[in-house]
Design a protein around this nucleic acid. Sequence first.
DNA 1: ACTTGGCACTCTCAGAAGCCGAGTGCCAGT
DNA 2: ACTGGCACTCGGCTTCTGAGAGTGCCAAGT
Lengths: 335, 335
Amino acid sequence: MLDERKLAVLRAIITDYVENSEPVGSKALVERYRLDVSPATIRNDMASLEEEGYLTQPHTSAGRIPTDKGYRLFVDRLTTVKPLSLPEKRAISTFLGGAADLDDVVSRTVRLLAQITSQVAIVQYPIVSTAVIRHIDVIRLHPDRALLLLVTSTGRITQAHVELPVETPDADVEAAAVRIGAAVRNLTSAQAVRALNELVRDSASDTVLPPVVNAVTALLAADPTTRVVVGGVQNVARFGDDFHAAMEPVLEALEEQVVLLRLLGEARNDVTVRIGHENEHVGLQSTSVVASGYGMPDDVWATLGVVGPTRMNYPSTMASVRAVARYVGRFLAEG
Amino acid sequence: MLDERKLAVLRAIITDYVENSEPVGSKALVERYRLDVSPATIRNDMASLEEEGYLTQPHTSAGRIPTDKGYRLFVDRLTTVKPLSLPEKRAISTFLGGAADLDDVVSRTVRLLAQITSQVAIVQYPIVSTAVIRHIDVIRLHPDRALLLLVTSTGRITQAHVELPVETPDADVEAAAVRIGAAVRNLTSAQAVRALNELVRDSASDTVLPPVVNAVTALLAADPTTRVVVGGVQNVARFGDDFHAAMEPVLEALEEQVVLLRLLGEARNDVTVRIGHENEHVGLQSTSVVASGYGMPDDVWATLGVVGPTRMNYPSTMASVRAVARYVGRFLAEG
DNA sequence: ACTTGGCACTCTCAGAAGCCGAGTGCCAGT
DNA sequence: ACTGGCACTCGGCTTCTGAGAGTGCCAAGT
């Protein structure tokens, strides 16, 4: 059903459509791409491709445009992600190089991604559970309440409130903090939870320890504040003329942390693409998402990616996302 | 030059234009608003108002629309900010009531503001310098580097890195942290800086104290991380049909923290309005900004506000911004 | 001096008509 | 299996037209 030439035709149509945003016809196709056959032949191929759902016509007797299915085939079989050029790599490296702390790394990354892809960038903060705990701190703000701080090796700070028995002396609180700190330092989230369980078992009499430990465990386990940062929203305005209508739902979706987290999907250390209707969220069904996990090899910390129109340059976007993901992972692993 | 009736005409035109987004003519005006004169009379007044720069015509023989100057007069002299209704007040109160920590308060506020005004909301984090220091912490991440944490009474956490002499024992670092903490606890930023100066003077021999103190002072003084949060960006899509062109620069401006901070302006505890070209930023000259400081009476912590089209409902927007600012201030003062 | 009705004028907008051209599908011929 | 030819379709652009809304101005009325 799909011989070589038909695939070439599909590839050419997508390339052309991505570049010019106009339905592409048989004649223009043979002129611009060296297909070495006549327009009539191409027409037959196009009709066949349309039959099978890879192409569609906006209206009778206009050119063809790719469907989501067409893009999918293109991404899966017709393209290879080219590595970035040396200057591009160097640009990424220097741009990230100046980062001071974790916030800075994330915000630089999101700006960088948005800029080099001209799309909307999304970066998830590294997940605490795969990093190592550096420090725990309990700060008494009120007689009956304390602030719990947790610092990880990636520089990330999470916090929670702890209710305390009112009459607890400050010294006891401090002692509890010290004990917990000693117990979990340099452990991963999973190890820390185990260590804390033991700690509580060994000191059942203590009144301060349990509430604090519970709070720490909750922070470690649920990791409820997994944050997502968005950048380059202004690029939505450039998604295309046909986008002016569908713009509001897209902007709306980008405001919802939950939607974004779902969008990035489960983390994997390679580039994944979700095209048009493959996205669950209705507001984003005329967009595509290109995402990638980042972290160390075999240890994914979080995901980053971009959102753009389905009519996007997939090879170059995928290359950019992959490159940025690798650099960020490497950068965080070092510092 | 501006008798009562002309002002009434201007008010009617703005009211009508805000509602219908269409240039308004003399006939429609006398029909919809009880002006008790003939269209011809209104025409004379309109011509005069145009002469003086309060109105303009999109093209000859269309109706008139207000200029920035017209809106300015309207805001300054033709409107009074009405207090919100009881249900509205209650809605604000319950929406903010459930907030857990500072981040939560800010994010709820920005969502609330965006929703009730249908515009883009901007909320600045409370400035550290007017709050009181609750806790200071120094966490050694590397032999030559430590993380400095600063927690204020509003629950805000700021951080910085400190370079340390490599051979410093952990105990010294801890001791320095304790001394500094004791010196500045429950002081405002300004008081703390003074206290730290004394501390350094009294212990000139110490090698650890100075770098840490310097870092703390820098955090307190420069307050470089004054953050701004934006929400309701999807509302830009509703600013109006004529906005599709000017949309990208607006979105771009909303991404720049610096621009936003400038936009909110110096904090004052009442509502200020900046209309169209009164904004410095070129991308925002077809928008208006309604902002207000918030905090305790006579003690402004930060600013919040909304960005919308110049053709907005000023009285209701101003009322909403004022109400939210007051509630947030009160809420933070209590908790 | 202000207000009003009348009137001529301007200019946009919506719809109709018509042409152009790009593109298609199909068929017969190589 | 490919190609050239041909009839056909249909959206987009231009032009034209009429309708309608709105204006500015003037002369007359209060």
